[in-house]
Design a protein around this nucleic acid. Structure first.
Length: 277
DNA sequence: CTGTGGTCCTGTATGC
DNA sequence: TGCATACAGGACCACA
């Protein structure tokens, strides 16, 4: 569910609370989110108990808690994963899957309605888990080079939206910000990468711009499925120009926004600003 | 290698 | 009131 601005909001919240915090106990309430651990839920709990967290890091939508010993707890929130930082007296909310007790007295709680996401221990992964090494840099990485990303996109014939959603090409962009970037750049989502010409740069610039604005607002939230570690929603939904605005007036030309199926999900566009070629 | 579609899950909204 | 269907901020995998 969360895209880069939401994951970054969560990462910052975790980093500010978890530095030098030790995990004193782990309770796995549902086995699925720890399915990738070879020794099952008990093995996962044993592997994490006693670890001291140094910080929280991120690449694209991949998030991990870097342990002081060089290993890491890798987190993929996917569609519905979230973290909460709560006092143990606060009742567990529905869909709580894993509870971490810490030496601060507070609990870190992993909640995931759909359980498409998961937690895993990455040996030696404190700096960059090998499981996330295939993920490209995101637009806010100091080493991000939009020109090389543009070159990759212009060499492909797949639809531009598929390409900017491909986390191996550029990371952090999901369905919301893809539609927002394409709206800002006035590009039709199914335009082949190789037909974009100089507009590739517009799309990439727009993606970074819109995600940066969303980050300042604490991310995009429509409901309780995205909240920060305090349980609060982000405020960017009101600023969206395309996503979720079916039949509402385009903020540039007043034409009703249309929703169309694409790649098994929904795409929103302005039929005048982003015409099909 | 490239592009596409199915799949993993649960919950909610909508229509018959 | 049921029941079926579609859809949801993601990403992996098999297949042509």
């Amino acid at each position: 569910m969360p895209e880069l601005p939401e994951v970054e909001t969560i990462r910052a919240g975790l980093a500010s609370r978890l530095a030098n915090v030790t995990v004193t106990g782990v309770e796995v309430l549902h086995p699925r989110p720890v399915r990738s651990h070879p020794c099952g839920p008990d093995g996962f709990a044993a592997a994490v108990t006693g670890r001291t967290i140094a910080t929280a890091r991120r690449r694209g939508k991949y998030l991990w808690l870097a342990f002081a010993d060089g290993d890491a707890l890798l987190v993929q929130l996917r569609m519905s994963g979230q973290f909460r930082w709560d006092d143990p007296s606060v009742p567990l909310q529905r869909h709580t899957r894993v509870v971490f007790d810490t030496d601060t007295g507070h609990q870190l709680r992993y909640i995931d309605q759909r359980m498409l996401g998961g937690l895993s221990v990455s040996v030696g992964g404190a700096d960059l888990p090998s499981e996330a090494a295939h993920v490209a840099l995101d637009p806010f990485d100091p080493s991000y080079d939009p020109r090389s990303v543009a070159a990759i996109i212009r060499a492909r014939q797949a639809p531009v939206k598929s390409l900017i959603l491909d986390q191996r090409i550029v990371s952090g962009i999901g369905n919301i910000y893809a539609d927002e970037a394409l709206w800002r750049a006035r590009v039709y989502y199914a335009t082949p990468g190789r037909d974009l010409g100089p507009r590739v740069v517009d799309v990439l610039d727009a993606a970074r711009e819109v995600m940066g604005e969303a980050l300042v607002r604490g991310g995009t939230s429509f409901d309780s499925l995205y909240v920060n570690v305090n349980g609060q929603s982000g405020y960017f939904a009101r600023d969206l120009d395309a996503y979720g605005r079916q039949d509402m007036a385009c903020r540039r030309c007043a034409t009703p926004i249309v929703r169309e199926p694409f790649g098994g999900r929904s795409s929103f566009r302005c039929p005048v600003c982003q015409p099909r070629p």
